[in-house]
Structure formats: C-alpha cells, structure tokens
Design a protein around this nucleic acid. Structure first.
Lengths: 345, 345
DNA sequence: TACTCTAAATGAAACGGTTCATTGCGGCTA
DNA sequence: TAGCCGCAATGAACCGTTTCATTTAGAGTA
C-alpha cells in the first residue's frame, strides 16, 4: 500500500485533464478561463479534497499572510485585551497572527523575533521590552514592516502607536492631589521601560508642583505577590506613610488589593488606590476600583491600519500616533483621613 | 539600484566559494564537513546576515514546526490560562504556535481550522465548539495529529484530554446540598456542549438524590451581562427562589456578581455563589469566591506530550486522559438563610 | 482559402532551501 | 605503480505552488 499523501494541484490537473497552470488559474479565480474546463477542475478538486498548500504558495509569492505579534506577556489585562483586539482586526482581511511572548527578557525577545523573521512574516507588531536595541536592529535590517506599540515613542526607524504616558500620569496624580493627598506611592514592575520612566518623571514633576509638603515615592520591581505585600507593609507602617497608591498595571493592582486585604487595610478609608489598566474585576471589588482605561481597541486599529498601509507599499515618513487614555473614577480613591486643603486640578 | 533582497543560501555559498549543498550541510551542523570550508561558510553567512527561510525549508521537509491551537475564546480565565500554558510547553522544543479563535461558531471554527491545515501545521490542539462534526471530519481526513481538549470525550478518531465533568459537578452540587441548599440554579452559556450536558445531567441527578424537596434549575444562553442580570432578577424574585447559584465559567461568575451587586443582593447572606474556573479576582471580591480550579497546566502538559508522541510517529490506539478538578472552598458559599437539615456528602 | 487577431491553455522557470546519488581526491595497501 | 577505499564536496532533483512567455485553436476578415 502506498502511503497516502495529500493531493497536490498536479493531481487535480491530471484528473481534470488540464495543465497545472490551468488548474492554478481556475483555483485562483483568474478571469482567463473557459467554462467547461473550469467546471471539471473545480469538480476534480472537490472530489480529491484538494487543499492549497500555503507553504508552497508563500514560497513562490514571497508573502505568507502571517503577521507576527510579540508582547511581553498575556497575564496583564492590558496585553490580553490587546492580543484579542489584534486577532480581531487581523481576521478581517484573512491575515493570520503568530504570537510570541518575550517575558520581558531582551534575549528571549530577540530569539522569538528572529524565529518570526525566519518564518517570513509579512509584518510585525512589537511591544518591546526594556532593552530592545538588538531586537530593533534585527528588525530594521530585515526590512519587515513593523509597528512598535505602547513603548519606544521616538525611534525614527519605525512607525509607532503609543500612549501619552506623561499626560495621563499628570491627570492621575492631579486627581489624587485634588482629593488632598500629599504622600503618594507609585508601584512599578519594570522601571527601565521608557513608558515607566515617562510616567515616573511626570508623577514626580506633578507632585513637586503641589508644594513642599508633597512627597512622591516609587516602589520598583516586586518579585511576587508575597514580597510585594512585605514591601508594601513596610512602607505603610513608616512614620509618614503614603495615603494613596498608584499601581502601574492590573497585576500590581491585584497584588495591591490582596496585600491590603491580607493586612486588614481598607480602601479608600485607609488608603486610596488608583490603577493603570482596567481589569475585568474593577467593578467587582468593594468598593470598585478607580483606574485608567487604556484605549486598547484604538491601539490595535491604528497599528493595524498603519501596518496594512506599509504592506500595501506606502513609503512615506514614519508615523507616530499618540493616544489618550481615559480616567474611570470609581470609589477606591477618596480624600485621605486627616485631609488637608484640596487643590483644584 | 537593484532592490535589496534578503541573502539566500546561494549567496552564502558563492561568497564562501563552495557549493550550495556544502553550505547547507555546514549551516545544519551535519557532520560530514571539513574544518577550513566550515569556517568560511559560517563567516560568509555571518557577514551577509543570512537567515534561513523557514518557508523553503518547510516545503522541502514537509514539516513546519508549527502547531495549531483553536479555542473558542480567550476572554474566559480558563482558556486564557490554557493558551498561556500551551505557549509555555511549545516553546521548550522550539515549536511555534498559531492560535485561532472559533468564537464558539461551528462555521468559523471550520474556516479557521481549514486555514491552519492549509498552512501545513504539524499538529493541532482543538477545543471544539458545540457542533464540531464538520471540523472533526476535515481534521480526520487531513491526517494531521490532533489532540481534542476539554470537550468531546469519546470520539475514537482522536486522542483526548478532558475533565471529569460529571464527577466535579457531583462534588460541587454535593457541597451545596451539604450546606443545606435545596433550590439551586446552574447558569450556562452553551447548553449544547457535551461538557455542559454532562454537568447538567450530573447536577440534576445529584439534586434528585437529595429528596423530593430539592429543585434544580438551569438558566441557559444569556446574551450579555444586562440580559443576564434581568433573567437572574426574575428568577430570584419568584415565590421559591434558588438559594445558590453555580456559574459555569468565570465570565458568568463575573456577570453574576455584577448582577447581584447591582440589585443589592449580598453573597453568601442572600445567595451562595459557586463558580467554575478560578479567575484572578477570586480572592479580591468580598467575600472571596468559592470555585472549581481546573488543572490547566496539567491539561496542556498531557495534551502536548500526547501530540509529541504522535509527531514522533507513535501509532498505538487513541488515548483518553481524564483529569480531576479541585474544589477551592472560600466564603461565597454558606448555609442558606432559613436552613433545612444538612446532609453529609 | 489564407491571413490576422484574440483569447484560452500550456509548459517551464522560478521561489530557497534539503537531500542524496555521484564525483573527485588523497592516502593506504599490495 | 596500480588498485581500492573512504570521505568531502558537488550538483541536480525535489517540495507544491504561481507566473509568464509561448503555443494553440478558433473566430473573424478580406
């Protein structure tokens, strides 16, 4: 018994009694093809259960219809939503997405992106990790159309879609200040990220403007929920503890609420909590969480549109889209216990 | 100016002054290759920045190193965790994953899977939707090694990794019964799923065993949180309302808690809540959520192992792995208000 | 009928690798 | 020195499509 191999277009052509080229023309809906043969070819393909081999097609056409997507992780609500949004927009025109995770590690990121490039992706969407120089270098050399998302606002080699980190942080901080907070803690996982740095800078500048009593503080690089709870506990039992916490993503928000609950602190009575990202559970905790709703769908839409333009051959100068985030004020922020004079913001 | 194309192995061979075959041998670490030429080839590849073209390689070798993964959606904590677990195990041996979403729609599922098959995936992991007959037919005909996960326990054409739905539902129901509940509501999104049917059957059987006073009820196919809240409100204001709710996944759990909060119901005081899946926020709501922790990593591990075995050519009979889930008892379940006699379970 | 013109169908050359039968060469043995 | 052997390197076939220059057939015209 011969081993059954999937039928090729040659098998279809033979069965229909036409040449390979003709079969190909029929199966690709090219106009120049007669009625009678057309039927026979389609019928033959049907009978044999022929399925095009995209690999062979891609090799010849030099395009795969696959777009790479590299994100640091999918555990955060923000990236999870982003991945989903890209799946959505990609499916529309029949593109497939090949997704890889960098785990925020530059070496892993480079390796994964190299893999994607070797697989001849048509385009790439990258959310870079903190030290992406080598990755970016490899991408730039490859010439694959790429949109850098969320981080790295000003590299002139790439189109970018980013958020106005400084602006949104100014509004977040301003909100807390206007409630009367003067000692605020910002907790972050990756202080090296340009995004984080922009936020920290904006945070500290805004706090400084609030006068000499204002004290800003940053807690960086917690390893896990337990260690984080310990750190937080130490900071909150100091002489003049912060009266508000800003968590830089939904994971830290979760860790924060867990740590507070674990130690018997209540929000916003004991301490206000403001979170970046809008996790699914923002309205389920009591009281519900005040947070920054980042425009995930808009990011995906802009990035995809830009990528499609490049894939279509657009060669103009790099575009840099900057989007605004929305503050969703719920009840986890309030005036601090011994309230000082509020300032308008 | 000629348009710069990425260098091919032919360019490398030319520059090193060797034949294409030799270059290929060097670059694939084949043993039969001399020291001097080896150096020259590697150097040439380095200088040109040569990167293998996986498409060409895949065409010749008839394997792509890509495994398809088709899940209904990633919005539920369960599937999100599953996708992440597969990313993890796949990266170990250098496989890439191409993930598609069926949105629980048989036609979409078929189309997406056909796309994966056309792309010559080496293997497939499928979480089928409710009516997967045509999809399964296509997969079976293609001969691509496939593991069916989570649903469809008994199709003899495929290896499967599933959960003991009936068993876990018996334990869940038993827990509620033993707390004294006699009127229980089970809410599901897709009643057609074999998984759901197994659970419903087990749920109703277990309730029936509890005596004539026990009343089981199923609420199926809510469209959105708002409609669901309406349905729930109606059921809970009837003459003899349920005293406990079982939500079949993390999305319905979220909708449930939202609906209860919105109407001013408290859990477990007014009604107990038991959820399938363990969302990140299970411990953040107050009181924390009692739920079923499904063994996602174990599912991924078993499925992957089975797939690798088939890829390695194993041809034995189909394997069917059934895993147990774990009940995580927290505080969203308690004895109902006007408690009847508890039964041991 | 001969000729031109058009459109449909053909066949072969890519695409960029891997693989394998064959060649060539150097050393070893008789 | 002839013959043999083994290994390194070669070159061509192959993977399954698309694409395009060429051939063929058929219709229309003079």
């Amino acid at each position: 018994m011969t081993f059954a191999r999937p039928p090729t277009i040659r098998d279809v052509a033979d069965r229909a009694g036409v040449s390979i080229g003709t079969a190909s023309n029929v199966l690709n809906r090219k106009p120049q093809v007669g009625g009678a043969l057309r039927e026979k070819v389609l019928e033959a393909a049907q009978e044999l259960g022929w399925r095009p081999n995209s690999i062979a097609r891609s090799l010849r056409q030099r395009r795969t219809g696959v777009v790479g997507l590299c994100v640091p992780l999918t555990g955060s609500a923000y990236f999870a939503a982003m991945v989903e949004a890209f799946e959505e927009v990609a499916a529309v025109q029949g593109h497939a997405i090949m997704q890889v995770l960098s785990h925020s590690d530059p070496q892993l990121e480079l390796a994964r992106v190299e893999m994607l490039l070797a697989r001849q992706i048509d385009g790439l969407v990258l959310v870079p990790c903190a030290m992406p120089a080598r990755t970016l270098e490899a991408i730039a050399r490859s010439g694959v159309p790429t949109v850098v998302v969320d981080r790295l606002p000003d590299d002139q080699r790439f189109d970018t879609v980013t958020l106005d980190d400084a602006g949104v942080m100014r509004r977040v901080t301003g909100h807390l200040l206007s409630l009367g907070h003067r000692r605020v803690l910002y907790t972050v996982q990756h202080p090296e990220l340009v995004t984080t740095q922009a936020r920290i800078q904006s945070f500290e500048a805004t706090m400084r403007e609030a006068g000499p009593a204002a004290r800003s503080r940053v807690l960086a690089r917690p390893e896990n929920p337990l260690a984080y709870a310990g750190d937080l506990g130490r900071v909150l039992t100091e002489a003049e503890p912060p009266t508000a916490i800003i968590a830089s993503n939904s994971i830290l928000a979760q860790w924060t609420l867990q740590a507070l609950t674990g130690s018997g602190w209540r929000w916003p009575a004991d301490i206000s909590v403001f979170a970046f990202d809008e996790p699914a559970w923002a309205e389920l905790v009591t009281p519900p969480l005040t947070c920054v709703r980042q425009p995930v769908q808009a990011i995906a839409r802009h990035a995809w549109q830009q990528l499609l333009a490049r894939l279509a051959g657009e060669t103009g100068p790099r575009r840099h889209v900057v989007l605004e985030a929305e503050l969703v004020l719920r009840s986890s922020t309030a005036a601090p216990a011994g309230t000082s004079e509020p300032i308008a913001y």
